[in-house]
């Protein structure tokens, strides 16, 4: 497809969580692997916001890290604008790296406390050699203005800012290499709601202004609904459903998507009762066989315990559930 900016195919990541070698020998335990992400495939179109939602242990941050090269995939490939990403090849990646950026969750950890704000924002500019000399600080001043801070803030240190202002600084840094694609890993979950609104609005404005494409990682369905064109739902490292934005909320297909929706508190006081959600997420080191969701699923039948469901087309995208194909 011509308008696909990022393509993820069969992305898998296993972590070795075995005990140290000596302990393994002494305690006769096996090597243990944690599959954080298993066979995940999706496309992101240019200019859209694609969201990945899931609870802790769903592997959403692992996917984000693999896409920006912080982690190496165990299997699968990532194709950015037609070029397969290979983080080992320095020269070819350099040009590609400039075109994507990341915004992190914790604005208190994502800015080096010993650097001036100006240098923090200028780091990508300098690393990619985009400008030099006085032009750099002029660009920094422009970026600070773009994110709603003042040019004089460049001379300050991160600790002089509130959480929301720090996240603005982090956004300015992400914008400074003029990227097309930004991975936003829980960008507002460390912020207060009123500040969250500011940051979400800012992200939307920037998307319109610079034609950005976002991959939004979040556990907050309301935020995801507000921001995204398309949404992928993750459970225990697997993509259980991909759906067009509002479709997921009006007609959730996978039982897990439905369960997540039911768990969202009802702020309108419409009298909608939260459905009691059964159980908790299983240990990802030893996930249940078959469909990993079957122990918590109200629709589960025998086949779910044995076989792994593959994605099937739905009105808004696709979903991996046997109950969907079942008549009645």
């Amino acid at each position: 497809m011509a308008d696909t900016l990022l393509q993820v195919q069969g992305l898998t990541r296993r972590f070795d969580v075995s005990k140290p070698w000596l302990n393994r020998v002494l305690e006769r335990s096996e090597r243990q692997f944690l599959t954080a992400t298993a066979d995940v495939s999706f496309d992101i179109r240019r200019g859209e916001t694609f969201a990945l939602v899931g609870e802790s242990g769903s592997g959403k941050s692992t996917i984000a890290k693999m896409i920006v090269g912080l982690l190496e995939p165990s299997a699968g490939k990532i194709v950015f604008d037609g070029q397969q990403m290979d983080f080992q090849s320095g020269a070819a990646m350099r040009a590609l790296r400039r075109r994507f950026q990341m915004i992190f969750q914790d604005p208190f950890a994502s800015l080096n406390p010993r650097w001036h704000v100006g240098d923090i924002i200028a780091e990508p500019i300098r690393t990619f050699g985009l400008m030099r000399g006085a032009a750099v600080m002029k660009e920094v001043a422009r970026l600070l203005d773009v994110v709603g801070l003042s040019a004089t803030d460049a001379a300050k240190f991160p600790h002089e800012f509130s959480g929301g202002q720090r996240q603005r600084i982090a956004i300015a840094r992400a914008l400074s290499s003029r990227p097309e694609f930004i991975v936003c890993d829980e960008p507002t979950s460390a912020l207060d709601v009123s500040v969250q609104a500011q940051i979400l609005n800012l992200m939307r404005d920037l998307q319109d202004e610079f034609g950005l494409t976002y991959l939004l990682i979040s556990h907050d369905l309301s935020v995801v609904r507000h921001m995204s064109n398309r949404i992928g739902v993750l459970y225990l490292g697997r993509l259980v459903e991909v759906a067009d934005g509002k479709k997921l909320f009006t007609e959730p297909q996978h039982p897990y998507s439905r369960m997540l929706l039911d768990a969202v508190p009802d702020l309108e006081l419409s009298g909608r009762r939260r459905r009691q959600v059964e159980g908790e997420i299983p240990n990802p080191i030893s996930p249940p066989p078959g469909c990993a969701f079957h122990p918590r699923c109200p629709l589960a039948f025998d086949r779910c315990k044995l076989e792994l469901p593959q994605p099937m087309p739905t009105p808004g995208g696709n979903a991996a559930c046997f109950a969907l194909g079942k008549p009645g």
């Binding site: 090269g69 350099r94 790296r97 994507f100 994502s110 990508p124 690393t127």
Partner: peptide, 13 residues
């Protein structure tokens, strides 16, 4: 493991 170091790694520093 802090995010500011990850941010520097993302740009390939």
């Amino acid at each position: 493991s802090k995010e500011y170091v990850q941010a520097a790694r993302v740009i390939g520093a």
